[in-house]
């Protein structure tokens, strides 16, 4: 069974269609990266999954519960970090968490215990008694992670969890999410328009463009599919380019194409063939000045979809 499933989910605001017949499926235990540029409909989809807004048509299910008709069942197993997450500034971190715990029906004793544990996990044990107004953006984001841990959800939905924090904070938050996913086997849905972040921790991605899902699948699968098997691009500079060298490289198995340019050669291949290519060049009598490898990142796939629109 899929933990998240949407059926022709559509949301219209007046004439604008924010989400257009979305059929999304997320399996239990996945770390799902929900990619798309600003305004692609990521947040709207998330709001519909949580019953925070009603779909115009279609339906969304979380763990088999209809998000519009049974929002309470959905919310009791779902942790949500909104894009601009806020806390009660005049309360301490621990008080904020205990409030969430009490809203989830936990007894006071259990609420205090879980709050302390959650703050430990996110690395804020010493900030427990400090007012949230003293927190940096990065600390608030980690507190938001603690806030969902406290209800021990089956699935966590995070809307741009890294927006507005510094690079070091981003790494901390991402590693924290990855660690939690690994330790608790929680399903995680994370939306982002930052590719490398999704790449860093997600195993599955869905790319949303103008309210439609344009690509969805495992990360490697997706890149193979999208780029026709090309995985790596190797750029080399030579003192002199001869036809013999080009022919020799073409014969290495795994090389898909060789492009020649005034400055050097660009080789597309399905695996990392640097040693073989270097050897071939030396064998053919060429002199290599520089060699660079670039793995096809999700970015290229993403940009490809971007351009095709």
């Amino acid at each position: 069974m899929f933990i998240v499933e949407t059926k022709d989910l559509t949301k219209k605001y007046g004439r604008i269609t924010a989400v257009d017949g979305l059929n999304l499926r997320i399996e239990e235990g996945d770390i799902f990266g929900f990619l798309g540029p600003n305004g692609a409909g990521k947040t709207t989809t998330i709001l519909m999954l949580l019953g925070l807004t009603e779909p115009t048509s279609g339906s969304a299910y979380v763990a088999g519960h209809n998000a519009t008709r049974e929002p309470l069942e959905v919310k009791s197993i779902t942790g949500y970090i909104p894009e601009k997450v806020g806390f009660y500034e005049d309360l301490t971190a621990a008080q904020n968490l205990v409030y969430t715990a009490r809203l989830n029906g936990l007894s006071d004793g259990l609420a205090n215990k879980r709050a302390a544990e959650a703050l430990d996990i996110v690395g804020l044990p010493r900030a427990a008694e400090r007012n949230v107004s003293e927190f940096s953006r990065g600390m608030k984001q980690r507190l938001a992670v603690a806030d969902i841990l406290i209800k021990q959800p089956k699935i966590a939905i995070m809307d741009e969890p890294t927006s507005g924090i510094d690079p070091e904070g981003i790494v901390q938050v991402l590693d924290l999410i990855a660690k939690i996913a690994k330790e608790t086997n929680m399903t995680i849905v994370m939306s982002s328009h930052q590719l490398y972040q999704v790449q860093r921790i997600c195993n599955r991605v869905g790319i949303l463009m103008d309210g439609r899902l344009v690509a969805e699948g495992l990360l490697e699968e997706l890149s193979r599919e999208a780029m026709g098997g090309v995985q790596f691009r190797i750029e080399i500079k030579l003192t002199e380019i001869t036809q013999a060298i080009v022919e020799a490289i073409k014969q290495i198995s795994g090389v898909l194409s060789v492009e020649q340019s005034p400055s050097g050669l660009t080789i597309n291949c399905s695996e990392d063939l640097r040693p073989q290519i270097a050897k071939k060049i030396v064998d053919t009598g060429g002199l290599m000045v520089e060699m660079k490898i670039q793995s096809y990142a999700l970015e290229d796939i993403y940009l490809k979809y971007f351009r095709e629109g």
């Binding site: 949580l50 069942e73 909104p82 601009k84 806020g86 809203l103 989830n104 029906g105 938001a144």
Partner: peptide, 17 residues
């Protein structure tokens, strides 16, 4: 105020009406 400070989203994602 809760809407503007971003606490309402968090509050309403808890299992309460």
């Amino acid at each position: 105020r809760e809407k503007n400070s971003g606490t309402l989203s968090r509050l309403l994602s808890q299992p309460i009406y």
